[in-house]
Amino acid sequence: MYAQEVKSTGKPVKSLDEMDPEERAFQERIDADIKIEPKDFMPEGYRKTLIRQISQHAHSEIVGQLPEGNWITRAPTLERKAILLAKVQDEAGHGLYLYCAAETLGASRDEMTEQLLAGKAKYSSIFNYPSLTWADIGAIGWLVDGAAIMNQVQLQRCSYGPYSRAMVRICKEESFHQRQGYDIMMKLVKGTDAQQEMAQDALDRWWWPSLMMFGPPDAQSVHSAQSMAWKIKPVSNDELRQRFVDQTVPQAEYLGLQIPDPDLKWNEARGRYDFGKIDWNEFYDVLKGNGPCNKERMAARQKAWDDGAWFRDGLMAHARKKQSRKMAAE
């Protein structure tokens, strides 16, 4: 996903004629769909934008463990508990692939973590909402992973080789995430009145934040033109959002749930759904740190980092001892 509002160069996209020969050769490779690899030449702006996008994506996977992890100990059956554990474990694994991809661009994992904790690097706004009931675990899998897939599928075509390959691996695991979420919702809507209410309430709370996951509208997104020219993000925010709505509305109908948008309706001429206005003030407010759980999410990550310092130092000290014993023995 999970990268919203990635800052790019902030400058207009250059035409081929305006580029120096090296940069021009680079752009021509991208235009010809040849992947860029870590050792290849790349403009500094391309490298920086990618580091921002990939680290934002990685941080989202990591912080994303928290709202779902919140329900592992309370999962209602042993099977649900196992599925949720496997899912959260996958997300941590995605974080790992992505940090590795960013490391190929010269950013270290520790640096990226410090930037997250210092509030300099972002993560997806969606994870600043609380998971209040078991139905939220269903809604997160169905909507949040659904939106993530929509975004990540196009990122498989990203011009940067290691990121594109990480996306291929991740996409293979994501469909299971969405299915388990939808399956939870299915069970709830077929269940008791209280379960049905729980399902509707979760959809009511997660719908709009899920649409915000795709980032601001194209017209306001100063950075997406350059990212699209570089094929860092091949499809625009608005187009991805529309695809998500078109895909999800029939799924909600099948569940018998009401999407909380009175303006939502099928547009025959466009062959797509029209939908209501997104409250972008809420989005920017959450990005600024004022969402319902921003403080708690960062506090949890900060605590894990601080409390873990002795553990990480211990392992490093042991590795050094082992090394010097080995040298002494030689």
């Binding site: 992890g69 592992i72 959260v88 974080g95 409390d307 990480r312």
Partner: peptide, 12 residues
């Protein structure tokens, strides 16, 4: 499982 998301390193 309480450690999910709170461990000292991602590998953990």
């Amino acid at each position: 499982s309480v450690w999910c998301g709170h461990a000292p390193v991602l590998e953990e």
